[in-house]
C-alpha cells in the first residue's frame, strides 16, 4: 500500500537510542506494506536538529510522523516533545510516544505536553510488531492530516 494522496514515500522520524528497538521497529515497518523512509535520531538534540534542518540535516525532509522514546541521552523525550509542540512550524506533526514506561505520571505528562498518542512497547515480539504497524496505519492511512501546503505555512 502506498500513500496515494502524496505520491511519495512516507517520512518517519524515529527518535530512539536503543539499537535493539531501532532494529525491531525497522523489522516491523519492513513487514508493513506502506512505502516509508525511516530516519533515525539517537538522541534528543539530534532529533531537533533534524526537524529544524540544522547542520548536516540541511536537506532533511519534514517527517509525516515522529516516533519518540522518552528516555534519551543529552535531551530527553519530554523536552523534545515540549519543543516540538511549542514550535509553530512543527507542532502539527503527529508525535507518537513509544516507550517502555507504563508509569502513570509519564503518560499524564506526555499528554499534557500535547503528545498525539502514548504507546507502551510490548515484551512479546508479535505484539510489538503489531503495535508498530497499527500506529503506522492509523496515523498515515486512517487519520486525516493537514495538507502539505498548510503544513509548510
Amino acid at each position: 500500500m502506498t500513500d496515494r494522496s502524496l505520491g511519495r514515500p512516507i517520512e518517519i522520524l524515529l527518535v530512539e537510542d536503543n539499537p535493539g528497538d531501532v532494529r525491531l521497529t525497522q523489522e516491523a515497518l519492513q513487514e508493513n506494506k506502506v512505502w516509508n523512509r525511516l530516519h533515525l535520531a539517537p538522541d534528543g538534540v539530534e532529533a531537533l536538529a533534524f526537524l529544524r534542518r540544522e547542520g548536516s540535516h540541511a536537506d532533511a525532509p519534514r517527517p509525516d510522523v515522529i516516533l519518540l522514546d522518552l528516555n534519551l541521552p543529552k535531551k530527553d523525550g519530554r523536552e523534545v516533545l515540549a519543543e516540538i509542540k511549542a514550535d509553530e512550524g512543527l507542532k502539527t506533526i503527529p508525535v507518537v510516544i513509544l516507550t517502555t514506561s507504563k508509569a502513570e505520571e509519564d503518560i499524564i505528562r506526555s499528554y499534557k505536553l500535547h503528545a498525539n498518542c502514548y504507546v507502551t512497547k510490548p515484551v512479546n515480539l508479535d505484539q510489538f510488531l503489531r503495535v508498530v504497524k497499527e500506529v503506522e496505519n492509523f496515523w498515515l492511512c486512517v487519520v486525516k492530516l493537514p495538507s502539505v501546503a498548510e503544513r509548510a505555512a
Binding site: 536503543n18 535493539g20 528497538d21 525491531l24 517502555t100 512497547k121 515484551v123 512479546n124 515480539l125 508479535d126
Partner: peptide, 8 residues
C-alpha cells in the same frame, strides 16, 4: 524486552 523480542 530485548531478550524476549530477539529470541522470538
Amino acid at each position: 524486552r530485548m531478550v524476549s523480542n530477539y529470541t522470538q
